[in-house]
Design a protein around this nucleic acid. Structure first.
Lengths: 142, 142
DNA sequence: CTAGAAACATTCAAGCTCTAAATATCCGAG
DNA sequence: CTCGGATATTTAGAGCTTGAATGTTTCTAG
């Protein structure tokens, strides 16, 4: 026979639901601020992660998405004149992404908006540290 | 003037990244188990939430998505003979979703798979309770 | 040096999700 | 009863994401 009906299971499912719920709130937060600047959530995420010159693959990794998706998003940003695809200095296979002056300015505004009214404001700094520890442990395990 | 340069901010951004990371692990977990049964993640989520007869709207709420999306997903499940759209007993506007025998059987298998190797297995029951409390507090705040 | 393996970026097809609009039905005020 | 606002579902259109296939370029074993 199997182990007795596990009370564990349903608690874990509920917990997964909470994690997803909070992730959705965070996504919504980004979506709202991005929309205020005429960007989609994906475009805003890309802009946020553009901390300096980088390749397409590097950006994709920072965005936690596939390179093909990065191509799609950067196409949009490039059409808006926010980024440029330059030839990479040392690797002719790769492109080097650079923010334009406009892109840099918009990124600053975006970062300012994103810092306001964080979805995590309901937790004290101490609680945030606790949460961070738990999440790190949960993630670095499988 | 604004508050001095907040050290808070970057910590919160990192924390958001962790929440999203764990949510992605959970999604990947569902995706894998669903694929083993020939289902997409969305179809598996719908099947999982079909705890009994319900309307399209009710399913959409359980899935945290728009009703139009539920229509799309249920279309697929119906084509696979897993669910049926029946006329609602008392409200002729609504459809009542019912699992077929096949659907019920597959749902059982799915629940079994989903309960195995939870992405949260890295946390002790005590830690899971702590996490649950923090997430609830964070969510029920805006 | 050179052939084969691996890495970078892109394109394309397919799937998921959302919004807005259309249709059908319900319900309550008069 | 009837009209008008609210609700349930579907459709159409668009954006986001992925995975496979492709063309270049780089790296590495021999």
């Amino acid at each position: 026979m199997t182990t007795p009906p596990e009370p564990q299971t349903s608690a874990e499912r509920e917990l997964c639901g909470l994690v997803n719920g909070l992730a959705q709130q965070i996504a919504e937060h980004v979506r709202e601020r991005a929309a205020a600047l005429g960007l989609t959530a994906a475009q805003a995420t890309a802009l946020r992660e553009m901390t300096g010159p980088m390749t397409m693959r590097e950006l994709a990794e920072r965005m936690s998405c596939e390179p093909s998706n990065a191509t799609f998003v950067v196409d949009k940003l490039e059409k808006q004149g926010l980024v440029e695809r330059c030839p990479h200095p040392t690797d002719r296979r790769a492109k080097q992404l650079l923010l334009t002056a406009e892109g840099t300015a918009l990124r600053e505004r975006l970062l300012g908006l994103l810092a306001q009214e964080s979805p995590l404001a309901g937790l004290s700094p101490q609680q945030q540290r606790t949460l961070q520890g738990l999440l790190e442990q949960a993630i670095t395990r499988p």
